[in-house]
Each structure stands twice: as C-alpha cells, then as structure tokens.
Design a protein around this nucleic acid. Structure first.
Lengths: 121, 121
DNA sequence: CCGCATCCGCTATGATACTG
DNA sequence: CAGTATCATAGCGGATGCGG
C-alpha cells in the first residue's frame, strides 16, 4: 500500500497530506481569515471598508486577524498616514483564490443540501 | 458597484459570497474535520484506524468531530457490532474532495514559502 | 473617524480515566 | 475496539473605552 513519494494522485491518507492540511489550516483557520481574504481578492481595502463588508466582525477581531495574515505573508499592510492603512493581498495571498472559490461553491451547495434541513424550516 | 444577484463571476465581496463561506466553515471548521474527511476520502474506515492515521487527535476530539460531520451529513456511521463502527463519506462529503485537494496543494506550497521562514528558520 | 487595548465569559481543544 | 465522563486551560470573540 505504499505509494512512492511525489505521486500526488493516491496518498490521500499519507502523513504528508495531513501535514499539508495542517499547514494550510494554520494560515487560514478560524472564523474570519477566509472571509477577510475573500473581500480583499478584488482590490486593496482599508480597515473600515473591510469591517463594513464583513459586518459581524468586531474591530478587535479584524485587527488580530489582519496581523496573523500579515505574519503569514498573505497580506501586506501599507501605512498611508498614521491613521490610514491599506491592506492588500500579496501574491502568496492571491494564490488562495482557487481555494476560496471552491469554498464558496461548496458552501453554496451545502446550504442548499443541508443547512435548511438542519436549522429547522 | 452593485452586481446583480446570480452573477457568480464578480461579486467577490457581496454578502452572498461571505454567507457561503460562513456556511462552508460551519461544516468543516476547526482543527480536525478537514483531516478526518481527507483520510476518509479513499475508503471507509473504523474509529481506531482514523485515530491512528491522525496520530495527534484524542479519542474525545475524534468522537466529537465525527458527530459534527454526521450532523452535517458529510459522513455516515455504520454500526456493525456495538463495538465496531465504520465511517464513510456520503456523496455530499465526497463533494469536498476538490476543496481538500486545493487545501493540500496550497498547504504544501505555503510550507515551502512561509512556514520554515516563520518557525525560527 | 481609525485602530488597538483591557476586561471577561465562552467555546474549542486537551489529558486522563473510565465503561460496555 | 469504540467510545464517554470529568476536569483543566488557552485562545476566541464580544463589549467597551482609550489614544491617535
């Protein structure tokens, strides 16, 4: 049952795969980071713009999550004035686009199939 | 800047997109669920097999997360004996495969680009 | 108005021991 | 083997208010 390393078709349960998933989750895990990246996908935005788009997020969480994204080199922060920063995706952050699109597609299908079913109605 | 609803190409920052992401995260959020689904992608497995493959997970967390996945109709549990259950992905669970593959690919690339750099190089 | 800090409850995760 | 019960804790996330 051993696959040779480098074969990317079969080793779905190899430790390498689980490691990659863990690494990915470390960067984009949690309730907010995917959403933040999603709203930054089309163009750079300022703090307040992001917070308005993701309307439930608090300033505190946005601040924290932006820092984590910066640490992981997914976004870049540009200070214009002291009180006017702009956040944009790095190329590395943009490379998450396919993943986010999958997430969106799947989430939409999932709502159709399951969520209405679960949440009553 | 308003896109018409139903257009699935542009509205990256529309609330519909954020809603879909939220729905998806609700199902597969957390440290373990993606990994569990990943190890179930190729074939059904029993509790102990999963716990061995995902070596850091505790029985407690595995039990909890399997229940959540079942609730979201992503996996199906089959009791053979009382002490011999089997878990397999539903079709809906299998539909996560593209997402997981993206996650794996991205995680691998991310490790190359960022993680060594972060973790004390 | 922008971003961040402090306080605090809550949830997710974990260690360990136990049951059928 | 396949879980459950109990206890502990770190971090998430909200409310609020402060310093630019």
């Amino acid at each position: 049952m051993k696959e040779e390393p480098g074969n990317s078709q079969c080793p779905l349960n190899s430790s390498k795969v689980l490691l990659s998933i863990g690494d990915a989750l470390e960067a984009v895990n949690g309730k907010w980071r995917m959403k933040i990246i999603a709203v930054l996908l089309d163009e750079p935005k300022r703090f307040r713009e992001i917070s308005v788009l993701i309307s439930q997020i608090t300033d505190r969480m946005l601040s924290i999550e932006l820092k984590k994204l910066e640490t992981n080199l997914l976004i870049r922060r540009t200070s214009i004035y002291s009180a006017q920063a702009e956040y944009e995706l790095t190329n590395h952050g943009k490379s998450l686009k396919p993943l986010i699109m999958e997430l969106i597609n799947w989430g939409e299908a999932h709502r159709g199939k399951v969520i209405g079913h679960l949440k009553g109605e």
